[in-house]
Write a protein that binds this DNA or RNA. Structure first.
Lengths: 186, 186
DNA sequence: GTCTATAGAAGGATAGAC
DNA sequence: GTCTATCCTTCTATAGAC
């Protein structure tokens, strides 16, 4: 169970703590405690310190979340059903995890946006990758992709604050309505 | 210019720092430095410490932002124009402030959602007030209000990370499309 | 009530034994 | 390459002079 290499355990522990407490709220001592690793190992594997660790965590969490969302998306037959599935799945996950398991990088992204240009660029990379993947599935409609992603991200914020999945379902209906509207036009 | 009472200067300075650096990222020493106030004054006016200060700042910033958004909203004649004005205004403000002036409480809301139940409730209060005000303007359509707010909040996240207003404009178009769709139905 | 000084804990980071 | 001990800074919070 805990046989994973030290470096990986540190990455996983950091991702978990970032999601719940954010970047500045997570101390490196808490990270090594959660990862059950000695403090020195952290700087052995991540000589760049907290910033390097955060960069790798953002990239890994971003890729993981993208795969998760796209898996739910690609299971459905139509675009509308796919979009609906993503929002419904997000709502279910939120409820099942006591509103802890939302977007893994949103909190960190907001924290570093105006304070750490290097990490901001990493979050931008991740969001761009998500947008590209979704744009591809929407026949190149990048505008629609940004709209749907915005609705999803914002719903995470409201749901976590309110401890309710109502905003997620509402955002999902708005996203689907957008799909229907664009279908009528095209 | 700096004749405002100490207590108010502290509130304003904290709001500004929270928006840029978040809750855990903002130290009380930075607050008193920004407010040009002695450290002791902070605990004199806010005996509850950082938590009490944050609570008041969240409430005040929330009310201020709500008034700002509703002013833009109520200036327009139709619902669609109102919604468009809110998103366009947000995009303009983001660009004018180098992507610093977004939702004043989103970062803090995500940070405290899983770590401070008292402050989470305060952010929930604010988001509920926004939702109620928007629901009223949408003829009681709470679902649509949550959808639009989600799109706005999420667009703030993406815009700040990407240093681009593209997500805000896309989210605005999605929100307007939702309005049009609901008009057809009703 | 305004302000200084400092306590006590936690933060990130490093050195160096093994 | 694993782990301990420690450095220096910053944090929140308090005490107490004025």
């Amino acid at each position: 169970m805990d046989k994973a290499p030290t470096r990986d355990r540190i990455l996983v522990a950091t991702a978990e703590l970032f999601r719940r407490q954010g970047y500045t709220g997570t101390g490196l001592k808490a990270v090594v405690a959660e990862a059950d690793a000695p403090f020195g190992s952290l700087y052995h594997h991540f000589p760049g310190g907290k910033q390097q660790l955060a960069g790798e965590v953002i990239r890994a969490s971003g890729a993981f979340f993208q795969a998760l969302v796209l898996a739910a998306y690609d299971e459905q037959a139509t675009t509308a059903e796919s979009v609906r599935a993503v929002f419904t799945g997000a709502a279910e996950t939120l409820e099942a995890t006591d509103y802890a398991d939302a977007c893994p990088i949103a909190t960190v992204a907001l924290e570093v946006a105006s304070t750490d240009e290097i990490l901001r660029l990493v979050t931008a990379e991740v969001f761009t990758a998500w947008t590209d993947a979704l744009t591809e599935r929407l026949a190149g409609d990048r505008d629609r992709a940004f709209g749907i992603l915005s609705a999803l991200e914002g719903a995470f914020v409201l749901c976590r604050a309110l401890c309710s999945t109502e905003p997620m379902h509402a955002a999902g209906r708005l996203a689907v309505a957008g799909i229907e509207a664009s279908r009528r036009i095209s």
